[in-house]
């Protein structure tokens, strides 16, 4: 079976740090940054390049629509 791998791109300056994506991620690969963006919010980022499956759960719960998702079959 082909494995899928994904990644996300977070629009950092538009992220408000609500963390709803963190709880929505089935593989727990989203964390909140220590540093803050221009608005003073910590922002979401992918903490494990191999753990993301590109399922889009984080993006579809994001109230601000700041997450773009890519997915690729490997192997």
């Amino acid at each position: 079976m082909a494995k899928v791998k994904g990644t996300i791109v977070v629009d950092i300056e538009k992220c408000k740090g609500c963390e709803i994506c963190v709880t929505a991620c089935p593989t727990s690969v989203i964390s909140m940054s220590v540093e803050v963006n221009g608005k003073g919010y910590p922002y979401a980022y992918l903490n494990d390049p191999d753990g993301c499956t590109g399922c889009s759960n984080c993006a579809i719960v994001c109230p601000d629509g700041v997450i773009t998702v890519y997915r690729q079959k490997i192997g």
């Binding site: 791109v9 590109g54 993006a59 629509g65 700041v66 890519y70």
Partner: peptide, 22 residues
């Protein structure tokens, strides 16, 4: 757009599965 990109090589139009609607 400022971003912290991981897996840069995957970011191609053909791999796009979700983006904010126009």
């Amino acid at each position: 757009m400022a971003e912290k990109v991981v897996n840069q090589e995957m970011i191609k139009p053909e791999n796009l599965v979700y983006q904010k609607t126009k």
